[in-house]
Each structure stands twice: as structure tokens, then as C-alpha cells.
Design a protein around this nucleic acid. Structure first.
Lengths: 334, 334
DNA sequence: CGCTTGCGCGCAAGCGCTTGCGTAACATGT
DNA sequence: ACATGTTACGCAAGCGCTTGCGCGCAAGCG
């Protein structure tokens, strides 16, 4: 991979001219342009973006710090982020926070040391005490993703409270009274909001909420599985379940399978987060679908605008979800 | 974010010394070390890896060019790659090839311009004519992932032929004779190998293979759906289906749902690629599971070893798959 | 007490680009 | 013919690090 120097020599001009021709930053005579371009062609020259970044103090790259890379929900988000970033001429640097504040800080450090021009972060539980204060002290543009722990940052997330309330009301309308919810990791704003949604739904339906029916699923499959077992072991087990996200839905289903319980015949289940295949397999899950692609796109959009103008006031974007009515709620039973 | 210069000034030493202390590249007196470290602490200094990369001609970053970021199969791979890369002190740059040779070339260019130290690539169909010859001419270490189009590169992939043959034999053993396969995009080696596996399975089972029963699903959901419809529209429709990958499985299932066909009662289905939830939803798919995490890990391992020693002969690693026997094959019907 | 050793450190030349400043060469107006 | 623009380009100083080379100094030696 040739350097600009070699191209310049071959074209019989200075590196300055090569640079300007390639970047279009200064007019050049047609003859010169052609000679430079020909030399580029001939040498197979590719700009060294590292050198460019050092000189320009901009890397044309964005950092994405997220957890659960394997989660298909985030998969969609990542795909959308990559597409948008690439459209804007930026490359994506990827880091997995592992939902752990310490590791998250390491990842963010690594990304900043790479001098990303902007950072997309799905803050872990605990971010508010660790990485967020640190980021606030840096000058780097940041957009928070999926979770919204701080109004001081730009952030984009789905609506959580109303959609969850709707799920609960739907179950209540079918006659359920003992409606349990398996909720995600504590300090996540998504968890808090979905719990509020649960309470709101119960209240609207005129059902007294019982805190014992709110079980911590830790946003993880196996924790959710255990939590579901605990709920079902109660003397007065719930007749309907709300799962707080897709990971936990798998855990909940596993617990139900462990006990040979059928959905929705033996117990009703509705979930936050949809699956692409949910239509095709039984039980067909009644779910709230997030606009994952849109989430990623908007996040990049926000980030680019902030990079363009750092003095913008912080913005919080909420995206509407979709209620997908299928069978697992038990509507079609009678 | 302070520069090394400022740290040096604060510590009353030269940048040379700061550099050596931070990198451990030269002994320094204990007193100096402490002063430097204190100055680093005080200024919140973070190394500028861009400058370092320029000076060292190494970026400590790996490129991952892959398609279908949203595909959970690749999600697992990405997660494993990220984990391994990060363990080795490398950052991941991510690009989506979109399974399109032209875009793939753009992505690879972008990654190389970023001067990644090594490249992981899931070559698109058509890579052999475009990006691969280009890469062969560069000096950059490359490992091919999932597909194995060229013995000239290091590559790691699952076994495809035998596992597919096994799926087919399994169906044949149940009495099926008209066994169709929905196969992936043409020029993919995975497709070729799985087709070979199909033929091999038919042969072993003593069933005459009919090429009309090999339908192109293009590795895409909707193409697979259409292909399935075509198969079922035949005067002598298949009684069993083999799906060539997880994306297409969704399409196949959708086509079956379109027609109200039940699996396995009306038609048997087995698939290449497993799903995490496949146990929990009906029909429970009988499938071949790839060791996705292992795939990612081994790929990074191979890449690192190649980076360490560019003169190694090219290696091709094949990973064993797992046959997961569930219900969609129809074994438990009678 | 000179002379070698080795230790601890700084100088300065890069790495491959970008970009402000300057300067020829030529066109324009009067 | 002379001032005044305009056009086309090169010089060189960075960007923030790394690293080969060399120098002063205290310790060790005969």
C-alpha cells in the first residue's frame, strides 16, 4: 500500500498537491489532476486514515458500546447503526459492556483512546455512578441508547410505561387478577419504566398490585427461569405472566416447559419484545415490538447532529412501540 | 484529554521518559516512575492510540467484515470475536458486507484504510472474483469465516456436508422419498457443501435425488418462502423439507403457515442451524447446530497466530456440529 | 586516581498525512 | 509598460506519539 509521497513522486508533484486533489480541498489544473489520479491508480494507493486522523484530529469513526451482542434485539440495532454510520462515511468500533460498570468503563476508555468522533452507549446498570460522570467531563459527543438514565445526555429509547400498562390491562380484561411480571435488572431505566407500566396497568384495571408478583429476572434467561419457578411455587400462583424482555421470555418459557404448563391453556403469557419468528411457532406470543431499526437510526442521527453542533440542548427521543396481538394471551381460547 | 507533553511537563521529565514509563519499554528510577504516574493520574491522561498507531505502524485493532449483522447466528459469532479480540487487547472494527461483492470491497477498503492489524471476513458470494484476489495482493493477515472459498487463506467453518447428509438420511429412514432442500445463495461454499451433503444423504439412503427438489432460497427469508411455495405447487410435492440455514427456515415456516400446513403432521422439516428457543416452541425443530461461539473464537485465534507469524502455511479449520433431535422430523408421530 | 561500566534520561528524527502561508507565472485593466 | 488580480502549486510546520542514539554521572576496578 503506497504512501502519498510515492504517488507524488510518480506524478511529479508535491504531496500537498496530491492531498488537495484527493480531498478536493483546493483547485488544481486538469492536467495535474489527471496525473495524480493516474499515479494513484497505478500505485494502488489507499489513504492512511491513521495519519489523516492525527493531522485532522478527527477519525471518522463512531464507537458503539453495547451489551449482549448476541441478543437479536441488539443485533437489529447494531445493523441499523452500522448502516447509518457507514452511510455518513463513518466506521463503527464495537465494544461489549457486558452489563458491568467496570468493564463498561474499560470499553469506553478503549473507544475514546481510539479517538472516536462520537459514542453510542447502551448504559449498563450502574452507569450513572461510573461511566456517565466520566463522560460528562469529557468533550466527546455521546448518545445513550435503549436506556435513558440521564437527561444531561442525548438519548433515544422506546416507550416503556404505556406499552407495558397495555399488556397488563389486556390480561386483566381477560379476567386475570393474579398477574405477575418478570422484570429486568434493577438499575436499568427500562426496568423501572416497565415496572411503573405494570403498576399503572393494574391500577387502571382496578386490580390491586401485589409486589410479591413482581419477580426479578435480572434481564437474563436463567435468572428469569428461576424467578418464574419461584412465582409458580407460591400457594396462590399467578394465572398470567408478563415478561420484561426477550431474553427473559426464553427463560420464562423454559420454566413453563419444565413444569409441563401449556401457554395459553394453563397460563397466559405476554412479553415485552417481539421475535421475528413469533408468528410461526406455537405458542404465538402476544408481544410489544420495539422499533429496533429505527432506534439505531435515530441514535446515529442524534449523534451526528450533536457532533455538528455540540451546543445543542440535550434531547430525549421516545419511539412508539407496536402491540402485536397473537395467541399467548389466551384471547382465542373460548 | 491531556497529551503526553503535558504529563511530561507536570512530571518534570521528557516525553520520552513518559512514553517509556507508560509502556514499560525502558527502565526508569522508582522516583521518576512515581512522578510520571502521579502526573498521569492528575491530568487524566489517556494515550492517543492514533498517534501511537502512526508511530508504531500497528493499530491494535481487528476488522470484522460480515453480513447479516442482524442474524442471530452471526450475532453469536460477533460476540465471541469481540470477546477474544478484547482479551488480546484489540478493538473490533465492524463492517457489513451486505453479501454484495461491490459493497464488500468497499468495506474491506475502509477497514484496511483504518489499518487494522488483521481482518476477519465472511466472504460474500462472488468474493473469489473480487475481494479475495485483492486481499491476496495485500500484506494484511486475513482469516475467512463461515465460508471457505480458498485454500490460500486461513479459514474456519463448520462441517457442512456430513451433517446435512445426516439430516437427509434421518428423513429417509422415516420413509420419506420426496425430500426437498431449500439451499442458500449459489456461490457460497456453505451452500455447495450442504448441497453435496444432500446428494450424499440421498445416495446413502438409496433414494434417487431429483434436482427439481433442490430449490434456491438465496439465503434469504423471503426468497426461501417463495421457493417453498414453488416446491409445494408441484404435482408431486415433497413430503419432507431440509432448510439450508436459519434465515431460510423462517421463510420456509412462513410458507407452510401460508398454506396451513402443520409440521410435522403434514410435512416434515429439518434445518441447518439451530435456534436458542427451538426447544420451547412448537414445532420443535430438529436441527444441526453450529458451534457459533467456538467459530468466532477459533477465527480470532487463527488470526492472531497469523499476525504473529505471517509465514505460516494457510490452515483450514473445520468444526463439528451437533445434531439436535426434536419433533419437526416427525419421529414421534406414530 | 584515571578508566571502564552501567544506569537514567533527553534529543530529535521520524510515522503519513493536512493546511496556513508564500511565491512564481500568467492574465487583466488602463 | 506597470500595478493588480488570479491561478496553480510547493514549503514546512505541525498532529502526538515511538525509538535509535548519545551523554552525563556515579559506582566499580586495578
Amino acid at each position: 500500500m503506497a504512501t502519498m509521497e510515492q504517488v507524488a513522486r510518480l506524478a511529479g508533484v508535491s504531496v500537498t498537491t496530491v492531498s488537495h486533489v484527493l480531498n478536493g480541498t483546493r483547485p488544481a489544473s486538469e492536467a495535474t489532476r489527471r496525473r495524480v489520479l493516474a499515479a494513484v491508480e497505478q500505485t494502488g494507493y489507499r489513504p492512511n486514515t491513521i495519519a489523516r486522523a492525527l493531522a485532522r484530529a478527527r477519525t471518522q469513526s463512531l464507537g458503539l458500546a453495547i451489551s449482549g451482542l448476541a441478543n437479536p434485539y441488539f443485533g437489529d440495532v447494531i445493523a441499523a447503526v452500522e448502516a447509518e454510520a457507514s452511510r455518513a462515511g463513518h466506521t463503527l468500533l464495537l465494544g461489549d459492556t457486558r452489563e458491568d460498570p467496570a468493564h463498561e468503563l474499560r470499553i469506553v476508555h478503549a473507544l475514546l483512546e481510539r479517538r472516536v468522533d462520537g459514542l453510542l452507549l447502551a448504559p449498563s446498570p450502574g452507569a450513572a455512578e461510573h461511566v456517565l460522570p466520566y463522560l460528562a467531563a469529557q468533550a466527546v459527543p455521546v448518545v445513550l441508547l435503549d436506556r435513558t438514565p440521564s437527561e444531561a445526555f442525548d438519548q433515544v429509547a422506546s416507550e416503556n410505561e404505556e406499552p407495558t400498562a397495555h399488556l397488563v390491562e389486556h390480561l386483566a380484561a381477560l379476567g386475570h387478577r393474579r398477574i405477575a411480571m418478570i422484570v429486568g435488572a434493577p438499575a436499568l431505566t427500562t426496568t423501572e419504566e416497565r415496572v411503573r407500566g405494570y403498576r399503572l396497568g393494574m391500577e387502571r384495571a382496578g386490580v390491586r398490585a401485589d409486589d410479591a408478583l413482581i419477580a426479578g429476572g435480572g434481564s437474563q434467561r436463567d435468572v428469569a427461569r428461576a424467578a418464574t419457578h419461584e412465582l409458580l411455587d407460591r400457594p396462590d400462583p399467578p394465572t398470567a405472566l408478563v415478561s420484561g424482555n426477550n431474553f427473559m421470555t426464553i427463560g420464562v418459557m423454559r420454566a413453563l416447559a419444565d413444569r409441563g404448563l401449556r401457554v395459553p391453556e394453563d397460563i397466559a403469557l405476554v412479553t415485552f419484545d417481539d421475535f421475528e419468528w413469533a408468528d410461526l411457532f406455537a405458542p404465538r406470543l402476544t408481544a410489544v415490538a420495539q422499533p429496533t431499526g429505527e432506534l439505531g437510526r435515530r441514535a446515529v442521527e442524534l449523534l451526528l447532529s450533536r457532533m455538528a453542533d455540540p451546543d445543542l440542548p440535550p434531547r430525549t427521543v421516545r419511539l412508539p412501540t407496536t402491540f402485536v396481538h397473537r395467541d399467548s394471551c389466551g384471547c382465542h381460547l373460548e
